[in-house]
């Protein structure tokens, strides 16, 4: 009886979540109607020029900025997160591993705005004054901040994904005389390739969706940066900036297109992750 009740409650909750996603999608499509009805504006969306007064509302440079920032942040966060996850699983001595797990859980709970705030006061001035990298507000500053912010999340995600396999194989590895490093690097990681990729995809969703770090640290210039010391603007930061200053113009209408792009990316990540999980479950 209680199992049926739980199953019904789970199905109900799942139905509400699915309805909410479709409602968001429908709302964005409906609110953006003026945009979808104007072919010139629609074509303009695909461009990189942002000049609403001239009818140019190109999102390309911001979409590229979003991907550049997410990719560069993950370049820092993923290897660091993987190393930390392996340390908590067995590379580090047991007391240190326990302390690291607590610290990672604590760090992953710190609000994004705190990372951005600390970066504005410490990292940006250091890049500007000590290294002489322009104004300091840049792709590099945002990537470093986002990378540091993502690292504990990536570490916990990977630790959770690798832990069951590690626990299952630990006795066999020990009995074979494999060191902890050998077991993790040569047995557990190859066996969990799909989980590693799933964690990367999920983390990329988090990186793409971040708003505050991009808004406060990246410099928000609407162009495609030539190198990491130049500023960039992400879609999320663009939505936040536009919402704060406008409610009627074509520029405002373009945020629906930006939101749909983000939603499409998150949906793509979700389907890729789900298909990887299905394949993995089928394999086991």
């Amino acid at each position: 009886m209680s199992e049926r009740l739980l199953a019904t409650a789970a199905a109900f909750a799942g139905g509400i979540a699915a309805c909410a996603v479709f409602a968001i999608l429908a709302l964005l499509l409906w609110l953006g109607l003026p945009l979808w009805r104007d072919p010139a504006l629609l074509i303009s969306l695909a461009g990189s020029s942002w000049n609403p007064a001239a009818g140019e509302i190109g999102l390309a440079s911001m979409a590229a900025g979003t991907l550049l920032l997410a990719a560069s942040a993950l370049l820092l966060a993923y290897p660091c997160g993987l190393l930390l996850a392996l340390s908590t699983l067995g590379l580090a001595p047991r007391p240190l591993a326990a302390a690291m797990r607590t610290l990672l859980a604590l760090l992953s709970g710190i609000p994004t705005v705190v990372y951005a705030f600390v970066s504005v006061w410490l990292l940006v001035p250091w890049l500007r004054d000590s290294l002489g990298l322009g104004m300091g507000y840049s792709w590099l500053a945002a990537a470093l901040t986002l990378g540091v912010m993502l690292t504990p999340t990536v570490a916990l995600l990977l630790s959770g994904a690798l832990s069951p396999t590690f626990t299952r194989l630990q006795a066999a590895g020990d009995a074979l005389g494999l060191s902890r490093v050998q077991l993790l690097l040569w047995v557990v990681l190859p066996a969990e390739r799909r989980a590693l990729l799933s964690a990367l995809l999920l983390s990329s969703g988090r990186a793409v969706g971040d708003t505050l770090i991009a808004l406060m640290v990246s410099g928000n210039a609407i162009w495609l940066p030539a190198n990491p010391t130049e500023p960039l603007r992400t879609l999320t930061a663009h939505i936040a900036i536009t919402l704060a200053a406008d409610t009627q113009s074509q520029a405002y209408a373009a945020i629906y297109a930006a939101s749909l792009l983000l939603l499409a990316y998150v949906a793509l990540v979700h389907f890729l992750t789900a298909s990887l999980s299905d394949e993995s479950a089928h394999r086991h």
């Binding site: 194989l169 006795a171 066999a172 009995a175 047995v187 190859p190």
Partner: peptide, 10 residues
């Protein structure tokens, strides 16, 4: 060797 076969994946 354990009670139950403890295979490595692969």
């Amino acid at each position: 060797v354990f009670q139950h076969p403890n295979l490595l994946p692969g």
